[in-house]
Simulated assay, not measured.
Amino acid sequence: MLLPEEPAILVVRHAVRRWLAEHCPDGDVAVALSGGADSLALTAVAAAEARSVRALVVDHRLQPGSAEVAETAAAQARALGCASVEVLPVEVTGSGGLEAAARQVRYAALDRARGARPVLLGHTLDDQAETVLLGLSRGSGGRSIWGMSEYESPWGRPFLEVRREVTHQACDELGLIPHVDPHNASPDFARVRLRTEVLPLLEEVLGGGVAEALARTAEQLREEGAVLDAVAEVAASEAVVDGEIDVMVLAQSAPPVRRRVLRTWLLGKGARGLGNKQLRAVDDLAVRWHGQGPVAIGGGTPNARLVVCRRRGRLNVGLEEQRRV
């Protein structure tokens, strides 16, 4: 499909062209299409730039008429020239709130349906800024404000340097009518309040450029974090012995490296929901030892919790039966 050479169309088209050249030169991709302006603009330019596009439309079935919305988006994808289109109905269940549960089942459905193709997502620079602010509120270190990566297989995000207003303008230039999800205007969701209240206030108070500054900060932290991760991998190869941590060896590493080693080790041992407080308590077992007892971490069974203990100069993970009251 030939696209008109209008200003916003050129911006999003160049963004997708660059992403394909760097990450998917064979040009076979899937696109997650919700019907909103971001994903609709992405689908349009991907169909023009990529060799073959498979559009995947997830129907969360959370609102009346969701099936019709999904079918409309699918019809738009066909009209735009996508090689194949599939609607994926899902059942949203799980813990962590509606937004988190919907995200989990959506990504799982996309992963199952993509085949061997990377999946392009319509996240914009504005989404990146919101993600960084949400991460900042958790206060769990630099990793929590890394934001989203341009490519973390199989997920690709060509629009992380594109403002949301540009994708809306691109849809206007293409004559496309995007779906407006009422959830995106609901103050029940923290991300929506960041979008409609917090970021506009920050832009006003700080004189503009806040979203771009947050995105740049996330990129710099990801780059620095990648270096620390590489150092931590080497440190782990020396400190992890027979599945346990040798605290004398671990203590030779700088704190950010130590905690990376511990985080990876704990996740490999089945830890879940690992927070900064737990991680630092485990770090204390290694380098600030004064006889403290086991540190409980998320995971385990209904009858036994997962704990980290220090014995004979090593840290190990095991189950500790919970006391019944």
Rank of each mutant, 00 (worst) to 15 (best):
R272W: 04
M1D: 11
E5M: 05
R280K: 14
K269A: 15
R311H: 14
A15E: 01
L110A: 05
L3Q: 02
A67V: 12
Q128M: 12
E130P: 00
N316M: 13
E212Q: 04
D284M: 09
H60G: 06
D127N: 02
L228H: 04
E49W: 01
A116M: 06
R310L: 14
V90M: 09
L98W: 01
D28C: 10
V282H: 03
A101S: 12
H14K: 11
V69D: 14
V234T: 15
V31Q: 03
R324C: 11
V308W: 03
A30R: 00
A129C: 11
P25M: 10
L20T: 00
Q220L: 12
Q292I: 06
Q322P: 01
G273P: 06
E49K: 03
A236Q: 07
L2E: 13
E320W: 04
R106T: 15
D59C: 07
L250K: 08
D284K: 12
A100R: 14
V198T: 06
L40S: 13
A21S: 14
E197S: 05
L274G: 07
S84N: 07
H290Y: 13
D38Y: 01
E173C: 10
G27I: 05
V287P: 02
E165Q: 13
D26M: 04
G147R: 01
A77E: 06
E173N: 10
A55R: 00
L221G: 04
S66K: 01
L2M: 08
P154T: 02
A170C: 11
M148G: 01
A108K: 11
G141C: 08
A129W: 01
L3M: 10
L214Q: 01
E152W: 04
